[in-house]
Computed example of a mutant assay.
Amino acid sequence: MRVISVPHEFNEEELFIDLRASLGCPLFLKCEGFNFAGSVKLKAATEMVESAERDGTITPDSVLVESSSGNLGVALSVIAASRGYRFVCVTDSRCNLATRLMMEALGSTVHVVTDHEAGSSLLAARLEYVKGLCEADDRCVWLSQYTNPANWKAHYRNTAPAIARGFPQLDVLFVGAGTTGTLMGCARYFSDWHRPVKIIAVDSAGSVTFGGAPGRRMIPGLGMSVPPPLLDGSLVDEAVLVDEEDTIRTCRALARRGFLFGGSTGTVVSGATKWLARHPDTGLTAVGIAPDLGERYLDTLYQENWVRALYNDDLTPPPTSPHRPGLGLPLRTT
């Protein structure tokens, strides 16, 4: 029996799914959504708050503020509620309704940015609003997930070692790229490890993180509209871009096998599937990190009207046979 006093003391670290049975893909998926925040972001939130408490940046009357597309906002809401801090999350119109309601239920204030200047991004508008909050009230503490080294240190200390323990013969690791905290923490850890591991970053098409052209992105989580300050590209072996249509198809194919995951996870699995199809080495040990679960996406990527309105297609995979896994996942491999 395990007994905890605060929510961040529980995080399921050792759960992996073998996707060969579900998708016919030689990939082990590390599930990071089984905690009270529902995503991998609980680790970064905990590390950033505890680091700021240790150095005195956060005091008992501090008001925590952060820009987030959703999952980190929920994680910080959990931490703030358990520690007695006020928290203001600045998000934008792409944030799922369920995510906003969850943050508010935890006692946080949610400000949704809907307008931005021509030529700028919603992220830039969010950051400007955060800066304005800090200038107006000196109690405000901006944790800045985009620049805070505690973001990647959380994964250097926790996520990557758990993968190494479970897969001592690991060959390739697939990590989604948002702020690149998870990516950099894992990349730095395996760079220091005793054997080589390929680090494959998985990013959303339309993200500029790895030099691509900016484009529309409607699924929150992965991807950036500005180059992420935490990224050290020398630690990444390759980047794979995934169209949002493929993210949705992958999520729905996994759901048809009983695994309801979020958009970030669908992107990672889609990117890993594409990469592994180009490298058909049956001896590879491959792991992907699944950042989130799917309940917060029920009114978006699992909702027919939302999908049809944005992509002119329902993107529903055909039924799969339990004896022929993977047939419901029509992903491009080039």
Rank of each mutant, 00 (worst) to 15 (best):
V236I: 15
W142E: 10
R100K: 14
P227S: 01
G266H: 12
E47V: 04
M1K: 03
W306S: 09
D137H: 00
T334D: 14
N148G: 05
D281M: 06
W142K: 04
R278N: 04
T91V: 11
Y146F: 14
R308Q: 13
P330M: 14
S5Y: 03
A124D: 14
I163P: 03
L254S: 02
A272Q: 05
G176M: 04
K41E: 10
T99E: 06
R195L: 15
C31D: 11
S108A: 15
D192K: 07
I4T: 04
V3E: 01
F87N: 12
I200A: 04
N35L: 15
I199V: 08
T57E: 05
T247C: 01
S67N: 10
N71S: 06
A177V: 05
G233I: 04
G258Q: 11
F10L: 14
R139P: 10
T179L: 11
E128Q: 15
L42Y: 06
G73R: 09
V202M: 08
L293N: 08
V3H: 00
G166D: 07
I248S: 01
D232C: 08
A150T: 08
A124H: 12
S93T: 14
C140G: 01
A277G: 00
A124V: 15
G326Y: 03
A105L: 13
I289Q: 00
W193Q: 08
D55F: 03
S5D: 09
A277Y: 01
R188S: 02
P322W: 15
E117P: 06
S204A: 15
F87K: 10
G262D: 07
S68P: 08
G211Y: 01
E244C: 06
N312P: 01
L235V: 08
A21F: 12
G326Q: 03
G328C: 05
I17G: 07
G288M: 02
S22E: 15
F16Q: 14
G288I: 06
L133K: 06
W142A: 07
A164Q: 06
R278H: 00
G38L: 13
S144T: 13
V63I: 15
V269Q: 01
L170T: 03
P168E: 06
R86L: 12
D314W: 01
T334C: 09
Y302R: 06
I248M: 03
P229R: 10
Q169M: 09
